[in-house]
Design a protein around this nucleic acid. Sequence first.
RNA 1: GCCGGGGUGGCGGAAUGGUAGACGCGGCGGACUUAAAAUCCGCUACCUUCACGGGUGUGUGGGUUCGAAUCCCACCUCCGGCACCA
Length: 818
Amino acid sequence: MELRYDPKEIDRKWQDRWDKDGLHRVDNDDPRPKWYEMTMYPYPSGDLHIGHWYAMAPADCHARFRRMQGYNVLHPIGFDAFGLPAENAAISRGVHPYSWTMSNIENMRKQLRSIGAIYDWDREIVCCLPEYYRWNQWLFLKFFHQGLAYRAKAPVVWCPSCQTVLANEQVINGSCERCGTTITRRDLEQWFFRITQYADRLLDFSGLLDWPNKILTMQTNWIGRSEGVEISFDISDKGLEQKEISTFTTRIDTIFGVTFIVLAPEHPLVADLTTEEHREAVEAYVDQARRTSEIDRLSTDTDKTGVFTGSYAVNRLNGEKVPIYIGDYVLMTYGTGAVMGVPAHDARDFVFAQKYRLPVRIVVAPISWDGSELTEAYLGDGFMTNSGAYDGMTDEEGIEAISADIEKKGWGRRTVSYRMRDWLVSRQRYWGTPIPVVYCDKCGIVPVPEDELPVLLPTDAEYIPTGEGSPLASNAGFLNTNCYRCGGTARRETDTMDTFFDSSWYMLRYTSPGYSDGPFDPAVKDWLPVDQYTGGAEHAVMHLLYSRFFIKGLHDMGVVDFEEPFLRLFNQGVILGEDHEKMSKSRGNVVNPDEVVEGLGADAVRCFMMFIGPWDQGGPWSEVGINGVARWLNRVWDIVVREPSDLDAANVDPESVRDTIRLLHQTIRRCHNDLDRFKFNTAIAGLMELANHLNRVWAEGSIDSATWRECIENFLLMLAPIAPHVTEELWERTGQAYSIHQQAFPSWDDALAAEDTITLVVQVNGKVRDKLEVPANIEEAAAQELALASPKVRSYTDGKSVSKTIYVPGRLVNLVVQ
RNA sequence: GCCGGGGUGGCGGAAUGGUAGACGCGGCGGACUUAAAAUCCGCUACCUUCACGGGUGUGUGGGUUCGAAUCCCACCUCCGGCACCA
């Protein structure tokens, strides 16, 4: 393609100029209203992918649009620099994670600059640097002192490949979110954050202004709140210290249908309840369950297996003895790790009962039930039956009555269970923030005092994981220390923090990245919270949930005065390869943005990212597609550099001038509304239409030079947030004062945008039969008269009677004929 | 299995109850050129007609409505998420 201008030269020229002039420096004291628009910071993999462009270029356009609307805009950038991938890559290349990460960042800064975004680089944050992670430690201690961080032994998720524990949120289909390895469980003592204490507040989305429903649904499902009853079964005849087994159910109305109890294989009572006769079988089963992979164990396809313990428990409501089984479909990590088996009204219990020939007793009768046996569990509503005093109640009434009675008798209590577990924040890896506590033989867990922070991550440590705990444990200089309380010998915590810790509060740090007396400067708190956040939907139940929790915690501690970190959220889609498949090296469909920028310029890539389709839908890369927008930018160049005085006043057609002004105002309105709602593709389409129109009237010579100038000026202003480099250049070439990016977005006049004629569609029985050009303000009677007079229409109405006429002002007349 | 979001020309897409296919790509024809590229102009859903025109058409089948891509019901299909949570 032959270019009218050299995008490479223009990109460089203006990027240097903006840098030199500090055009993107954000002033905290600017009197204009603030707008904090943030995009998820990238992981410094070392190479800026086209996916980064897809996330960042439209986000920058939106932030620029807000700035042109008169806001003081903070649109920052940083690097998510800690974490497993950096470490793994560093290990395989034999370079230190620090130097690997920092050289990647150096490279990515250059690539990011090529986007031409309004990032204020003075506010950049890099969370693997001590000036950032010391505040991770400071915040960790805040949560610790608040009782929201605790250390406990629990069955945790372990990735054998990454050699570390993971949070539940990092397990995807039983595999490690990062490397895909099937995870296992380990009983380990770990650091947790009490996110479950905030479960109900996290379910309350009323503090959010505009979030995709999809994310709200995902968070709601992840938290998985269920109201139910904890009900205990009597095992006092076993002579054990533990006199009862507690189970959790949401269907206490089915308590009379219990025909067995199932314990999770890891349940602490398993060994005690197993009789001699069944010991061998039970031990074999438990052993087997322990070896079964998490994937198989959680697969819904596998049938329900179990083994009888030989013991029985008593259902206190009817005095019945029911057998106690062990089954791996019961999870130790949910509820009490034991369930009451009600085969008639639970699909899983039904399958289990069939397999082990356990009785099925219906206690909630289906509506019109004829008394016959069930072929599957009945989960619907009905009237209680076989339930003693509760017979005849609806199941809803049954839940109320039985719950109340159980509480009265002390056999159980109403409670709420959550699917979500506490957030496991410790990792057995090197490349992360050291957890700021020491272990003293005398004093136990001792937090590092605030004024001793940061606890520096030693640079001379072994960072290759051994599988025998954290790499830092083998670094004597780090490990051995003195107790901050008694001064005696102590060991440092050698686990590091989950990297989601970094991103849980980074929106605070951007407001004052150099501040050294706290995580952020309270003097600039007016920036917060974030007005608009953009990023991928894959963080729905990880980063976005953690961050909401974190900020609520900090709110309760008085660190911040708001409860939601991100008021509005927009999820962009995924950019696909030219073959419509997900981009991957193995498919060979990866696009290198640097090469395209080199050839066609940053603005062409920006435009294409926005023109490809709705931003939330993603879409396929297209070589010919980007050539199309590059060609359009050249056409724009060609049109804009024309000399307006070449227009000959003698040819001016007032009607054409009016049409042009009207289209200009319509385009301003459309472009404004579209950019406001992230509808970049239709905003660009509108600008293309305006450019086509201008090109046409130029050829006709039908407008005057003043109108031409007005159109060109406004056109450039509208294009400026989309294509900042070429518009700045053209702004200069058309004799306007630097910088176009400090101008206001054009405003429109509805009166000038109004059409004075419309195309009146005439339908007969809903089918279009004619189109008439009529004055926009036509009255109904006149419109009908014109419609009926149309010869085309008459051929359909002649000899028939018009029984009804529908008139839609400004649009159509529909004649209903018999 | 459950919960979301989709399915519109050759392609990306526009239109959220009122002219289906804006805008762009591709294709075809023309201008310019010795020629090609680039650029510019015109045409471009399908069937039918010499033409004017007519008919059909937004995954499939029903429905509501004067009128449906748009609303309702059922189904097919693609993508994403969750998946024994008692």
